[in-house]
Design a protein around this nucleic acid. Sequence first.
DNA 1: GCCCAGGAGCATA
DNA 2: TATGCTCATGGG
Length: 254
Amino acid sequence: MEQDNSNLLNIRLRPFDVFRTLLETYGPQGWWPILRRAGEPGFNEEGYHPGQKIRLTEIDRFEIALGAVLTQNTSWSNVRMSLGRLMSFFDKKNMPLLPEAILGMEEAELANLIRSSGYYRQKARKLRILSGFFTNLKAVPERAKLLKLWGIGPETADSILLYAWDQPFFVIDAYTVRIFSRLTGISTGSRTPSYEDLQYYFSKSLKKYTVEYGEFHALLVRHGKESCRAGDPKCEECSLKKICNYVDKSNLLR
DNA sequence: GCCCAGGAGCATA
DNA sequence: TATGCTCATGGG
């Protein structure tokens, strides 16, 4: 059965125009951050690598996948603490942070190390399942196989595929939905368009350059944190206000 | 104390 | 298919 994405494609606003404006505003974001390599040439102190084309190692890819699960509905600052704890734990054992290391420990012990990420019991289980999948991984994972894993949904799968394997899957997250619902007036809440419809809408407007996909998603996260915030959006200083449909009611009431 | 954060799975109707 | 609930820590 063919999906009906036509309502979204009728939207006048082109995602690519938003991408250009955000890139002018903030510059390249250097995603996905790799904490293991923080401070190395080309990486800043938090592991971001703006403007650098990074050659990823097996350990890098696994760290990205771990982070993608840990950051589910959770701020990155909390995730960074968990990743730091995991790394120092295995550093002391002189073991690289690879799937075998995760599988070699008790789930409760793992949960304790990642407490700061929240939902830590669920996420410990997710990380072990993910690790099992990674142990017999020979090539780029298939999206459908990732989605069959307990704890891996579309956003997490696409984040892993895009940032760890350079595959052109555009990531739709809560920031993306919020920003574009304000820009275009598309409905939110239970009436939010499906993940696949939104992904199709963005993909049609972008070239299949994974750098563009990765940069755009990172810029949307940055913009959602700093400007297009949930509670008190800073519409005055927003670089998208000329093309935005959103009416900041809290401002009108003043 | 409140709200929010780089989701996903499951029960119920 | 759709809605509602659960999972949980940490920062503003």
